[in-house]
Design a protein around this nucleic acid. Structure first.
Lengths: 237, 237
DNA sequence: CGCTAGATTGATAAAGGTCAATCATTGTGG
DNA sequence: CCACAATGATTGACCTTTATCAATCTAGCG
C-alpha cells in the first residue's frame, strides 16, 4: 500500500514556528497506518456512510472534499463540517456513526478498521497523541463554525466562509493565482453549512459582486478583489 | 489528594448498554491523575484563564459550571460551550488557550500541568484513549451546539437549550422534582450561547410561560409543563 | 441537443435586533 | 440588618433582514 498520500493535518498542542496547520504523521506512522488501510477512490456525491449505522471503520482523506451532515426532522439539512485532505472522519459514539458523510468531489480515502486502529493506538502512544491533537483541532474548527453560523447577516457569514475556505481548502493549491479560491461545494451546500436559505446565499453573492468585493470567474471559483472590505464584513457583529 | 470527585463523563466509542454518558475513568486512573492535580475551589465569575495566554495546565470540573467564550471585535461575546462536572477544558492549540473560561457558579476544579499529563498519557495508552473519547464527545457537543444556533426561531433555540441543560447539567440531581431544571447561567449568558439578544431570550421565555409550556419558580429554575409541545418547538426548522 | 438539478431574481411577510425605559435582584457598606 | 447601588431582566416601539413562495434562468450530463 502506497503511504505517500496518507496525511493528518492540524495545529499541534505545542508551540511551533508559525502556529499553522502542519503534518502530524511521521513516515513511520504513515507506514503503520497504511498497513491497516484500504485505499478507496470514490466518485463525487457518493455517500461514505449513514448516521446511526455500525461504525466499523474510520476514514482519512488523501484527496477531495467530503461533507458531514444531519438531516433534521423538518426536512432541512445541516452540514456540520466540510472535510479536506488531511482530515479524519468517522469517529463513532456508542459504536455508531453520528453524521452522514458524502463526497463533494471525486475523492481518495483511506479506510481503516476501528478494531485494528485501536490496537495500533494502544501500542503506539505517540501516534495516539497525534490523533488527540487532530480531534482537538477539529473541536476548534467546530467552535469557529458555530461562531460563523451565529453571525446575523448573510454577508458576514459568507465573508467568514470564504476566508475559511481559503485557509482550509486551498493549502495544497499553488499560490500563483492571486487569491482565487476554489469552491468545490454547491450553493445549497453553503446554505446548509451557514444556516441560510440558498436564495440568501445567491442574493448576498450578487450584492458582493455588485459592490466589487469579489468576482466569480465561474460558479466554482471566487476571486477576492477587495480583501480589506471582505475582512470588515467578516468582523461585523 | 482526594481523588473521589475526579470524573470524566462521555459517551464511549464502543457500544454500551444505554448509549448514555458514563464515567470514563477507573479508580486507578483517578489515582494517577489526582497525583498530578491541584484541587481548586473558585468563586463564581472567576476567570480561570484568558485566551491567547500560555497553556500550562488543563482543567477538569469536579463541581460547578464553567463557560468558555470568545469576545468578538464588535464587542459581542460568543459562548462556545457550557462545561459541567465531568468535563475537561483547557486543551491548547500552539501552546496557547483558544478561549477564555470563567466560572458561572462556585466551582471545584482539578488543575493538571500539561507536561506531567502528557508524560502520563504516553505511559498509559489506555488512559489516553479515554481522553480521546472525551474530546470526541466534546466535538459532537460542539456540532449539536452549531445545529442549535442555526435554528431560526428563538423558541426552537431555547427549547433545544433547555433539553440540553436537562441532559448535561442535571445528571447529578435527584430525579425527585419532576422535570425541574436548574439554570445556573444568566439570561445574557444564554443569549451569548444561542446567538440571540438578551431581549429576545426574555421575550421568548415570557411567551412560552404565557402559552403554559414552561414556568419559572425563580430565575434560575425552570419547570417543564408541556413536554410534548416543547419537543415540537425544538424540532421546528 | 434537450433535460434536469441547481442557481438566480423578485415580492411579501414574519422574526429578531436595536434603542430606550422600567423593574428586579444581587451584593455591598454603613 | 437594612438601604442603596449596580448589574441583570423585562417590556414596548420601530426597523432591518432574511425565509418563503414563485418564476425564470443556467449549466452540466446524458
Amino acid at each position: 500500500m502506497n503511504a505517500s498520500r496518507l496525511s493528518m493535518r492540524a495545529i499541534p498542542f505545542d508551540v511551533t514556528a508559525a502556529g499553522v496547520a502542519t503534518q502530524l504523521l511521521t513516515e513511520r506512522h504513515r507506514q503503520n497506518l497504511s498497513g491497516l488501510a484500504t485505499l478507496m477512490n470514490v466518485r463525487r456525491r457518493t455517500v461514505v456512510y449513514r448516521e446511526d449505522t455500525l461504525a466499523r471503520w474510520i476514514f482519512m482523506i488523501a484527496d477531495g472534499v467530503v461533507k458531514s451532515y444531519r438531516d433534521l426532522p423538518s426536512g432541512k439539512r445541516r452540514i456540520v463540517a466540510f472535510l479536506f485532505p488531511g482530515d479524519v472522519f468517522g469517529l463513532a459514539e456508542n459504536g455508531q456513526f453520528v453524521n452522514t458523510t458524502q463526497t463533494v468531489t471525486d475523492a481518495t480515502l483511506y479506510r481503516i478498521p476501528v478494531d485494528a486502529l485501536k490496537d495500533l493506538l494502544r501500542r503506539d502512544p505517540d501516534l495516539q497523541f497525534r490523533f488527540l491533537c487532530k480531534v482537538t483541532h477539529q473541536l476548534r474548527e467546530a467552535q469557529r463554525h458555530t461562531i460563523c453560523v451565529s453571525k446575523r447577516t448573510a454577508a458576514a457569514k459568507i465573508a467568514l466562509f470564504l476566508k475559511m475556505l481559503e485557509r482550509d481548502g486551498s493549502w495544497h493549491t499553488e499560490a500563483s493565482a492571486p487569491r482565487t479560491i476554489a469552491i468545490p461545494m454547491t450553493r445549497t451546500d453553503i446554505a446548509d453549512y451557514l444556516g441560510l436559505s440558498p436564495e440568501a446565499v445567491s442574493r448576498c453573492n450578487s450584492r458582493l459582486v455588485r459592490r466589487g468585493i469579489i468576482a466569480f470567474p465561474d460558479r466554482h471559483r471566487v476571486r477576492i478583489l477587495n480583501s480589506v472590505e471582505l475582512d470588515r464584513l467578516a468582523a461585523v457583529l
